[in-house]
Nucleic acid binder design. Structure first.
Lengths: 335, 335
DNA sequence: CAGAATTAAGAAAACGTTTCCAATAAGAGG
DNA sequence: CCTCTTATTGGAAACGTTTTCTTAATTCTG
């Protein structure tokens, strides 16, 4: 491997001069600069970022801890996070932790050892080790799409209450009086907040609790399917269903169809996320959209501020959802 | 930051001894080992991987160059690649290059400078800079789901010809005699190979070329939509359609539905990839499945061998697709 | 019991940078 | 012509490891 020494030798200058030229720090004469660049060109020299990082204590590395990169939600988020990080000159170490706490622990250790400057992670659970491991709490981090109970951790997320309200008002406006909801795991704050927004809006509109049937899902297709089965065992159409993400909505609609019900004629369905497939689904899915780009960008920006040690006023940022109306919702048919 | 020196001091031994204990290299007495581990525990010492890598010339880092992490195909592949890398003790730097050649160049530079030990990337284009930049060709790499024209680059991919054949035989067996196909971009070898398998099988079965209508797509939903519009302008159902990935199949089916055609009654559709959403689509999509886990695992294994400098007999590995029959295909209706 | 062989541990060099400090050369001012 | 700045440059330490080479201490062998 060709090092800065080789460049210095070929250019006939000292190592420090080469460094100065490369980093454009300090004074250097035009001629030496030229000599140095020429040598670099000839030798195809590329600085070793390990050495640079070791010396300068800056790695320009971030850890991206994600539950499941294969889920459309996280894949989308990851894309925008990567984009924002790239813009700021950071690289991302991809850590797919799944449901495995051991793996999360492993990765956190590794990230620390690799001297990442910060960690960004969507939707950690409350049991997450991040907050537990003491030497970890020193490293800047930002949590996306999720609040941790205990402390005022830096967070960027959707206004989930507003999201629930958006779904509820849309369905109310269509004239629905009977509702169902498939939530995410209740231990995740996101689920609770969305439910809160959904329920309070309905109740304020005078819907009685007997007419609201809530089942717990898992944000996956299968949770939507199982949820819908339970709902249809207890509730007879027409009614309106709010699924807390699109995947579950897809699963739920499939079950409805299998049982002979039509969407939106018998059941209106609202999803959440605005997955690109909503458009091609049959029927195209009405959904509460997340501005993924905003979340990611705000997250990285916040993280960078924390890394630079700047004082941040608002450690907790929320972004607003918006409704995308398609064909899976309609007024309830006459009974 | 607490370093190995602090540990040495607290344990009352030399730095080299601490290093030996940590790496379990060389002889150390039970007592010193205990002293060292105790000091490590007290100080919460974690080795600095930058320094270690710098010295040992091993970073245990891999670059993952991917066109679009938000596409279901790449997200799925990335997940399994990450899994395989993790098993082998490697970390991944995520590089989402999009369609931007400048970005690809940037990232390749950065990866080299970060001293990654290898690069793995799905579906590079032939114009990819990888092969061009001379100092890059030294760093081990493996290409997934794609062959580069020129040389015998190490590759792991689906047997695409078999994939095309699988789709064709399935449709033939159902009794179809009129066919359409929405390909991927023709400049990507994957598309050409799949088409080859599809066409030769049909022609060998005695289907005349007038009864095969091929349009070029882009592997995205919209390509499927546009492709289907062109097909329906030229071809009247019933016929059988092979889409070279599931996304395009979803788009195509939507257009068919908009135009009043039913799948599979009027048009049989076969996709490719076996996206989890195939199951919940309406109708559930028959598809040629890719064994993502095998591809990823074989890719990482191959890359590791190249890194270790082992001689590899087979630099080019193909894995076999299999058909998953669902409800989007059926015998053609009587006309 | 002397010398050889073995074991455990320390000292120091090396990895490739950045950066502080000192040194040299050139120009300015008196 | 001598001193004082100023502009460039080089030398060397430092970042935190690993690893080679010594050295000291112990055990074995005849």
């Amino acid at each position: 491997m060709v090092s800065i020494k080789d460049v210095a030798k070929l250019a006939g200058v000292s190592v420090s001069t080469v460094s100065r030229v490369i980093n454009k720090r300090g004074k250097t004469s035009k001629e030496t600069e030229e000599k140095v660049w020429r040598a670099i060109e000839i030798l195809q020299y590329r600085p070793n970022l390990l050495a640079r990082s070791l010396r300068s204590q800056k790695t320009k590395l971030l850890g991206l801890l994600v539950p499941d990169i294969d889920s459309p939600f996280f894949a989308r988020l990851a894309k925008y996070i990567e984009e924002a990080a790239y813009q700021k000159g950071y690289n991302l170490i991809l850590c797919n932790v799944g449901e495995d706490p051991k793996r999360e622990k492993d990765y956190l250790e590794v990230l620390v050892q690799r001297q990442v400057e910060g960690i960004i992670f969507p939707r950690v659970s409350d049991e997450s080790l991040l907050v537990r491991i003491p030497y970890l709490s020193k490293i800047p981090y930002v949590i996306l799409d999720r609040t941790l109970e205990k402390e005022e951790a830096p967070t960027v997320k959707l206004d989930n209450i507003a999201a629930g309200m958006l779904a509820a008002t849309h369905l109310l406006k269509l004239g629905h009086r009977k509702f169902a909801c498939i939530t995410g795991p209740q231990k995740i704050s996101v689920s609770r907040e969305r439910l809160e927004g959904f329920l309070t809006t309905l109740i304020q509109a005078g819907i009685s609790v007997e007419n609201i049937f809530v089942v717990e899902g898992d944000f996956k297709i299968d949770g939507g399917r199982k949820g819908m089965e339970r709902i249809l065992d207890h509730l007879s159409p027409p009614f309106a269903l709010f699924c807390m993400n699109d995947m579950m909505a897809f699963g739920a609609i499939q079950v409805a169809r299998e049982r002979g019900w039509q969407v939106p004629r018998d059941i209106s369905v609202v999803g959440l996320d605005n997955n690109p497939l909503c458009e091609v689904f049959s029927p195209p899915l009405t959904t509460v959209a997340q501005p993924f780009d905003q979340i990611a960008k705000a997250g990285i920006t916040l993280l960078c501020k924390l890394i630079e040690g700047k004082k941040v006023r608002k450690k907790s940022i929320t972004v607003l959802p918006y409704l995308v109306t398609r064909q899976s919702t309609a007024p309830p048919r006459e009974q």
